[in-house]
Write a protein that binds this DNA or RNA. Structure first.
Length: 269
DNA sequence: ACGTCCTCCTGTTCGC
DNA sequence: TGCGAACAGGAGGACG
């Protein structure tokens, strides 16, 4: 799925096209997508407008011009698109219709994505956002280092843990660990303070660059149907059998905690 | 409390 | 080529 850069690309493009348009109808075609009561959900939406779209880590927050927000997580394959009045396609599960006839559609092949309805007054203090850690930009290095000190999980698993650092997923963790010269299997509490600083620095750099390039498009993900370009910049992820750009040794693919993982065994220690 | 595994789904790629 | 197995950018819950 989309990681922080891809979600940010989605947020920016949605902001340009969905704000301040009255919602006249909502259709939920797959009920598991919504974590809350559908009737309340409709009541919170119909007759109102989106007045902003925010992002926290990999979560999108649609701000309504009333007391509510919608918190949307795309998980592996969720996408939004805005189109006119054409037939729904196979994996569109949630349709918002605007007064001008346009529709905002949530498409999710694997149906993993989830949406929560929350009150503006406390949505940062309740699930799912209350547990979210800081994004790399805002990460306090001492807090980060101390969290790593408290766990014996592999460092990759800790970096995928959104309560420790928000926004990284399987692709960018591999890239950041390569740039930081750290093996993904290293035990978290053996990562040094300087290495933690390197992780923060490389995470900021990687996510910024990826966002500028419109995110990474592998497999099927694209932000509002437009492909990103960061896949052309990947150093290790998906690069099995390619020479490492630093030392020339071949990149290998392994598994860490069930996730496909790409490393240079020579550069990463 | 912590770490590991399973699960939710569907479509595509891999390996024999 | 065919076919089943493994895998895909996530995370919450069960279990030991």
């Amino acid at each position: 799925m989309p990681e922080l850069p891809e979600v940010e690309v989605v947020r920016r493009s949605l902001k340009k096209i969905i704000l301040n348009k009255e919602i006249v109808n909502v259709e939920l075609l797959h009920k598991n997508i919504l974590n809350d009561n559908y009737e309340e959900f409709k009541k919170a939406l119909i007759g109102y407008q989106f007045e902003d779209v925010l992002r926290f880590g990999k979560y999108l927050v649609f701000v309504l011009n009333n007391d509510y927000v919608l918190i949307s997580h795309l998980r592996m394959e969720g996408k939004y698109r805005v189109v006119g009045n054409k037939p729904y396609s196979k994996h569109e599960h949630l349709i918002y219709t605007f007064k001008n006839g346009e529709t905002l559609r949530y498409d999710d092949t694997r149906k993993f994505g989830r949406i929560d309805l929350r009150l503006k007054s406390n949505y940062l203090k309740t699930k799912p956002l209350n547990q979210l850690g800081a994004e790399p930009n805002d990460l306090d290095i001492d807090v980060f280092y101390n969290k790593l000190q408290k766990t014996k999980r592999p460092i990759k698993v800790s970096l995928l843990d959104q309560t420790i650092i928000a926004g990284l997923g399987n692709i960018y963790v591999d890239e950041v660990l390569f740039l930081s010269k750290i093996l993904p299997t290293r035990i978290s509490n053996e990562v040094t303070y300087d290495e933690a600083k390197a992780i923060k620095r490389n995470a900021i750099m990687t996510l910024e660059k990826a966002t500028k390039l419109g995110g990474t498009t592998i497999h099927t993900f694209s932000a509002t149907d437009i492909d990103g370009l960061f896949q052309n910049e990947l150093l290790v992820h998906t690069k099995k059998g390619h020479p490492c750009i630093v030392c020339g040794n071949l990149i290998i693919k392994t598994k860490v905690s069930g996730r496909g993982t790409y490393i240079c065994e020579h550069c990463q220690k």
